[in-house]
Design a protein around this nucleic acid. Sequence first.
DNA 1: CTGAAAGCGCTTACAG
DNA 2: CTGAAAGCGCTTACAG
Lengths: 341, 341
Amino acid sequence: MGNLTIKDIAKVAGVSYSTVSRALSGAPGISSATRERILKICDEKGYRANALARSLINKKTNVLGLIVPEVTNPFYSELSLEIETYARELGYNIMLCNSLNDHERTDELFNFLLSHRVDGILHASSRIYSADMLKNYSSSIPFILIGTAPAECNSILNTISTDNYEGGRIAAKYLLSLGHRDIFYMGYRKGSTSHQLRLLGFNSVMENAGLKPVILENPSNGSSISRGYDLCRKIFSKPFRQTAMFAATDSMALGALQAAEEYHISIPGDLSLLSYDNTIFSSLPGISLSTVDQRKQALAHAAVDLMMHLIEHPYNDQHTHQLISPSLVLRNSCRELTSGT
Amino acid sequence: MGNLTIKDIAKVAGVSYSTVSRALSGAPGISSATRERILKICDEKGYRANALARSLINKKTNVLGLIVPEVTNPFYSELSLEIETYARELGYNIMLCNSLNDHERTDELFNFLLSHRVDGILHASSRIYSADMLKNYSSSIPFILIGTAPAECNSILNTISTDNYEGGRIAAKYLLSLGHRDIFYMGYRKGSTSHQLRLLGFNSVMENAGLKPVILENPSNGSSISRGYDLCRKIFSKPFRQTAMFAATDSMALGALQAAEEYHISIPGDLSLLSYDNTIFSSLPGISLSTVDQRKQALAHAAVDLMMHLIEHPYNDQHTHQLISPSLVLRNSCRELTSGT
DNA sequence: CTGAAAGCGCTTACAG
DNA sequence: CTGAAAGCGCTTACAG
């Protein structure tokens, strides 16, 4: 690297390199005359401090690791942009990594981020981890799980997530309020704590009304359009009596839309479809899904704020679990059930 | 950072810390017995080498900077995932930054990446930069512009992009082959070299047929659904004689779809719509856009491969300009013009 | 206000 | 095969 160092500048300025360092770091105890003279030289010569050397001494990189399943999933790309933007405002940079929902890769990424001495790690995931693995992650560094952990991990790590239980309740209440009684719950992934809570909330409302949804389980470890499509094809190929469907994620709902198109099922004419996430997908023309908003900006801000707190109070072993209340966004994929059907 | 250092390990192992270093870095000249003993201790104690210190000496970080306008744009999220995945296979990590298409922010990001001593910078952008700015960027570090630069910059930087001229030609040829003669070219951004070439290619085919498209220019400095919507609303609110529209990007096409829905214009019934990018958007249910594929994976691989070359041959001042041939992806948004209309 | 010195955690010639 | 020493580019007490 043909980069200039502090010594080069010192030589030009005719001072010791400690003085240059002080001028650059804004330390006290230096005459503003020399400071300005030095700063001017740095500017002219195009000096750029080596962040590596700085971090090595300061034991602080001002870099945060962010692990998401896949940036191509709109939920995570929107979340990561919010996080990056807000973190940058606070003087932190983000190292974004895609886990592809794979344990081994996640492990590698952790090791990578730790060896680069990031100041903290934000891990967005909807997978269930073993308590051991989570403990391993959260023990060495300020760590926040964006998502829901199994209950036994509450004492060892910080989490921030949408209130999935409440989200499930909101969804069920809305469909009931439209008069629906026979309802599909499509895309449940039992390998995800968030999904478990979402279903629990949904069921709590249904049970109160003396009802039970038909659950279409997604056996794979991620939600996607094609999984939603596969699940719904099976259902739509035969007659069914359900009048509404709740899709556990926007991408699953998109798959439902695709299958519905194929089987000439009108939405919301034949089937009301309510979704979950409120990604860009749900507001696209010709799609226009009613959906439960996860409020990504609130999630992002809460996560970064908490991270700042953790970094400033490293020896605090209190663990917090923040829930962001979801909200309902109404578009055109649900209709009121008129008597007669 | 309560991290273990090489000295801690040396103490436990009862050797000098140079020996530990050699065991870890796989250097020659160390008995495999001691190496394994040391490695075992590192493993047990959970030692993780400090990448900062290593990079400081090696003058190599194995980190690449990637600047994109916005990860929430599917084109860039798909591209960045391809780049990250491939770079990781080759032992490099990506620092992803969002420029928001803003010059000042881009400058900041550059400085940030340079001070972190990344080994190279990939800059995906469709904006036009001044030769000065590009020169400034590309002079200090291996640099690749993913996109098209103004001609006068060809001698100072490396570029990789889709062959936009050819892409424009492909689009025009296809619409003509379906019998269309009156065509909108929607979403042209004169502030983008790629857009300029795309239009040039499109026009070259049209002119050959003695035709001229009606150009709807996008005056802002980025493409988006809402810009496409705004542009098309104006057109769709009055009668028009055009039978086909070429949208300069998928997101602009989505805006067209939205406006068409509002004005009850059937696509492709009343208007054929051909798009450009082939992002996930274009294959969504109910959307199903025919589009020109930019072949993001080929772009990503070519960019990373070239970057590897630049890193290994730092003093080569040859500059290359690779073009990836686009391809046509047919879906359901265009129809043949039957005689009579 | 300024300089000389020690040190962050590592690698790599140089001796032995 | 192993150790002592110098050094990567910085910061920060410690003197003066």
